[in-house]
Amino acid sequence: MDMSQVVIDVKGLNKWYGEFHVLKNIDLEVHKGERIVICGPSGSGKSTLIRCMNRLERHQEGTITVDGTELTNNLKGIEKIRREVGMVFQNFNLFPHMTVLENLTLAPVWVRRMPRREAEATAMRYLERVRIAEQAGKYPGQLSGGQQQRVAIARALCMSPNILLFDEPTSALDPEMIKEVLDVMVSLAEEDMTMVCVTHEMGFARTVADRIIFMDHGEIVEQNSPEEFFSNPQYDRTKLFLSQILHH
């Protein structure tokens, strides 16, 4: 695996919501096959950062280059990148008026122009992969939270993305459902998928991440390998954060 190829390159990124400076001078390189976990207190800008990577949010300064294409107002460029970058949301955001199978085949059929039969076969493969193939005909409202999130992951996978973005995928789940989603994410990581995850699951970060990034007040405070990050944090802010989420 060629870990030297940069697939997401963020340089000098600044973003404001009105007067509020949400992202300050972010520089970040994500290499091919790398698994990155972004953590930090709420309001630190981590979700905004990840949403900038497929331009669900516009940035005002700096550049973001994904797979060699810079994210600008150019709609065609954005759509090309969104085809290559999958995203999983905190609230699943499955389309409630479509069956599970229709959720999975919508984008392959209409964006990738894949024949429906083929798209459905692919979809069933991924549903088996996340172990809910038997739910294909149901509507999202009939599934549990954990099942919905696994469908959402399968939906992202159906576009065969090069990169997967996770925006707090387990935060809206009941405790007993978190594991089933994390298991799927771990198995993806084992297949060398490039992943950027915003999450508070420190167990997941410890076992899977190549690099952990800690953010606060819109800035990257520190980034390190998991061993170093947990055993030897460089900043008092990091220490405080870790003590708050680990010792309970």
Partner: peptide
Amino acid sequence: IPKGQIDAAKALGLSPWMVTVFV
């Protein structure tokens, strides 16, 4: 319509008219 629905559709690479018509 919750904003997340539109986000999810965009993130799948759907174009604006597809987002409107399908989602």
